[in-house]
Amino acid sequence: MNEVFFYFFAVLSLVFGLVAVTSRNIVRGGVALLGCFVSLGAVYFTVGAEFLGIVQVIVYGGAIIVLYLFALMTMDFATLKSEPIKMAIVAVGGALALTTSLLLFVGSSGIAESVKPSISGAEDIAVPMFFKFLLPFEAVSVLLLIATVGAVAIGRRED
């Protein structure tokens, strides 16, 4: 049953990702990206990574996408010019994307073991995070503070 859900949400996230990247309407692209992230959270759930699934929906869906849509609201869409499509660039991008995908896929051929879904909730994650990875955790908190101050400093209107 887990596999059925995995395939369903994997296909859903790929479709939403394609819409997000190719959509001409930016707001529609943002909402499609939200669907992609929520589907990926569901994919994490199918292998038992419960905490990550929840955090994915909250941080990516709730914080990052809202941040993007909020920034989009400060822009005037009527004055934005539509981008021309150059077939050469599309061909180069498609070829490069296909090659990279194939290379990554070929890398998986040597693995014979199988994934064992196991529940990992907040409690299981907390023990290694707060003991073995305490220093990176603190460094990330400082990074978030610096990013917040930097974002305010850059985005401030200078009079």
Binding site: N2, E3, F6, Y7, A10, S13, L14, G17, L18, A20, V21, T22, V43, V47, G93, G94, L96, A97, L98, T100, S101, L102, L104, F105, G107, S108, I111, E113, S114, V115, P117
Partner: peptide, 20 residues
């Protein structure tokens, strides 16, 4: 579940992102 599933999903997402 085979790990190839994750490889396929990850590589396709990477391809879509690179294309965009």
């Amino acid at each position: 579940m085979s790990p190839v599933n994750f490889f396929v999903l990850s590589s396709l997402l990477f391809g879509i992102g690179l294309f965009g």
